[in-house]
Amino acid sequence: MFKNFLPTLMAVAAGFLVLLGYLVPIGFLPTLRQVLVRWATILAAFALLLAYANVLRVHIGRLFQKRAPYRVSSAILIAASFAILVLVVLEGPNHTLVQTWLQTVLIPGQSALLALTAVTLALAGTRLLRTSRNLYSVLFLLGALLTLLAAVPVAYPPIVHLVMQFVDAVATGGIRGLLLGVVLGILMTGLRIILGIDRPHSGG
């Protein structure tokens, strides 16, 4: 009963009510939708707690393993997460210390990682033709090169502008088609859950 029937009933009922609240905004439905979505955000916070417990379990286990690689990394991860967690819980997310930590460590570190991604991507792009030499790879690199060239602030002749506009049109077509495909996939997956065909909550 708790394995399959009740959870499926719960997912179908909650999903239908929330979807109705979005698509048929009349009467009490929008208010009900807001309440149900807020409940879900509270539940998501509990899920985050569960995820943190799992992270701790893995990394504390690593600390006590002999010859385990990355023991210091695990110790740093646990210490940093715990310190920030305590600070945010005791003082709130807007406290000066928390904000200073974010501004001096987290944001510079994450933008440095993003910068590193640029180098990694550029290297991967140069290796593409070595690993798969076909027309699609050529088109992929051509699209990337033309876009990078268009980003260079140079006074190109008018004919280049016209070509660039067509390049833009081709890229728009490709990306828009991809996005539509992704959205249709999301719709199908969501509908399968709401109709009770897929039951990821019960492992089936």
Binding site: L48, L49, Y52, V55, Y70, V72, S73, S74, I76, L77, I78, A79, A80, S81, F82, A83, I84, L85, L87, V88, V89, P93, V98, W101, L102, V105, L106, G109, Q110, L113
Partner: peptide, 13 residues
């Protein structure tokens, strides 16, 4: 590890 730990701690906080 420091960045991941800080991000996890902040999000959970």
């Amino acid at each position: 590890a420091l960045l991941v730990g800080s991000a996890i701690g902040y999000a959970l906080g």
